[in-house]
């Protein structure tokens, strides 16, 4: 739960404009913040100050490039596990220990955890699946590889 920022309304109109703009590509130029600031009619120092604040409050998790794993010869997949009742925390710890696991969510339904993996090849994914399958806290593991991508666009109107 968010402690530091109780309500969305705590962000003013300018903050929202900054956050909406930053969810689009930053300029691939020498001074990306300076250019972005100018677009918004503010100064470079000011936008950098706000970005630092947003990061401190964990509103911005990071500013980074996002690649399409497949296109740079990596493999991604989705997996789900059913857990031995009472042992979920141990299972979470085990699953999260792989740097290949990028997202991991507890969800309603028959599977307790749903997580995504990005790995350098299929062999590595298969190896992780095997290791998790033999984990004593995990009752069942299933992999749901993608066949077709229809959309990926993670952008939130602030």
């Amino acid at each position: 739960m968010s402690r530091s920022l109780k309500r969305r309304d705590d962000l003013n109109a300018l903050d929202k404009r900054i956050l909406n703009r930053l969810q689009e590509d930053i300029p691939f130029e020498k001074r990306p913040w300076g250019i972005t600031a100018r677009e918004l009619g503010i100064t470079e120092d000011f936008i950098m100050e706000r970005i630092a604040f947003f990061k401190k409050k964990d509103i911005i998790r990071r500013i980074s490039a996002v690649f399409s794993p497949r296109k740079i010869n990596f493999v991604s997949t989705l997996a789900a596990v059913k857990i031995i009742p009472g042992n979920i925390n141990k299972a979470v710890k085990k699953i999260n220990s792989y740097h290949e696991v990028t997202h991991n969510y507890r969800r309603s339904g028959e599977y307790d955890l749903w997580f995504t993996l990005v790995a350098k090849n299929k062999k590595r994914i298969a190896r992780i699946m095997r290791q998790l399958k033999s984990d004593k806290n995990i009752k069942e593991i299933s992999e749901f590889p993608a066949i077709k991508l229809f959309k990926i666009s993670v952008k939130f109107p602030v």
Partner: peptide
């Protein structure tokens, strides 16, 4: 290859 280069909120 790169989808975006942006802030992840």
């Amino acid at each position: 290859l790169m989808r975006k280069f942006a802030a992840i909120l």
